[in-house]
Design a protein around this nucleic acid. Structure first.
Lengths: 202, 202
DNA sequence: AAAGCCGTATGACCGCAGTCATACGGCGGG
DNA sequence: CCCGCCGTATGACTGCGGTCATACGGCTTT
């Protein structure tokens, strides 16, 4: 089992924290199943959970991969039953928030409601930016778009949280393609890197 | 100027409707600019609005393309200033909702707050499914994923709202690639179509 | 009525990223 | 301690989708 580090839970609204129950799931284990009565909303402390449905042919249709620091099944708050399956892609540590209590809190705690709305809106914003990024054809364009939108400061600097392979999946590329693209962009003085930091060169 | 048809505004919470002011913008016109004080949240009745930033090199970094029936700048509710530019990609008809009034409504009208949260959560859900779709390599896989996730009923039927070219952009493909893929999938009896309807064959 | 635009549709060619192979270094477990 | 796994890194080849070209029909505009 992984050990959560570097506080990914900073993003969790304060009012929600006392409701959390930590859940550990092994790779391949189910978190919930489609059709099951909604009991919780989740947050990924560490690992990854795959949300999916199964087609008649038996193929798995991926709807989302929730990684570290992300909530998932937020829409379950407005539903009686889960609309998809949640399966751990790796050994994972999650926080489960009872849906009933969260719903109640949304009705009584105006500050929390505002925070929750802001959180959803921010996530939506980022998801849309990622959509535009994935629509770009060239790997180099995606890297630059990523730095332009996610990077901080004047140099659009990004501190890589995970591995380069993780970044490759975020960008919808194979790791080989990303390694090659980064090597070329460095050669051409488009991006620079220092340790785990990646940034645009002027 | 386009004429809104087929009620895309069914998705707008009832409490919000009285606040709407209709705005028409010509292609290329600005809806708001980055840094400007937030005044409104928007909804697209018809047309398309491009949200973007400009890089130092002058290139436009696309963050989102809001189409018919979509809200945009929802995150502006939690901000003092717009974080990006909004420019009409085509002649468009929008609804503008004063941010201050919407914020007030969120505090006073619990039903509306619940609806707004559900609306954001649903949009997030769809955006994530689209992300997984764009990460698929083959055009055929994207078409099938689209039908599996967006299609209704046992056949996973989708009534195409716009043109095939619109669908191509939704799927992150050129229209030529989509025409070819659809032709092949029809030949291979994977998908069928009747008029504007597209569905999976068993 | 003619002209022009747009969506639909298909063919030819090319280039980029995917795939497969290979190598190396660090880290953890047996 | 050594082995194996994983992340990093790069090369060679292939194939899919992008690009460009072309054609046709319906609709609007002049």
């Amino acid at each position: 089992m992984p050990n959560p580090v570097s506080r990914p839970n900073a993003a969790i609204p304060a009012a929600l924290r006392p409701l959390a129950r930590e859940v550990r799931v092994a790779k391949g284990e189910w978190v919930f199943r489609k059709g099951e009565a909604v009991h919780s909303v989740f947050f990924v402390l560490d690992g990854e959970v795959r949300l999916s449905r199964f087609s008649k042919g038996g193929g798995e249709i991926a709807l989302h991969r929730a990684g570290r620091g992300e909530f998932f099944a937020e829409a379950a708050l407005g539903a009686a039953r889960y609309h998809c399956n949640a399966i751990a892609s790796r050994d994972s540590a999650l926080l489960a928030f009872p849906a009933g209590k969260v719903r109640a809190l949304l009705g009584t705690d105006a500050t929390f409601a505002r925070e929750w709305i802001a959180l959803l809106a921010r996530q939506l914003q980022r998801a849309r930016a990622r959509l535009e990024r994935l629509a770009l054809k060239f790997a180099a364009e995606r890297v630059v778009h990523y730095l332009q939108t996610e990077g901080a400061g004047d140099r659009h600097e990004v501190h890589l949280q995970g591995t380069v392979k993780d970044l490759a999946r975020e960008l919808g590329l194979t790791h080989e393609a990303l390694y090659r693209t980064l090597a070329r962009l460095k050669r051409e003085r488009v991006v620079g890197h220092e340790g785990a930091s990646l940034f645009l060169l002027p």
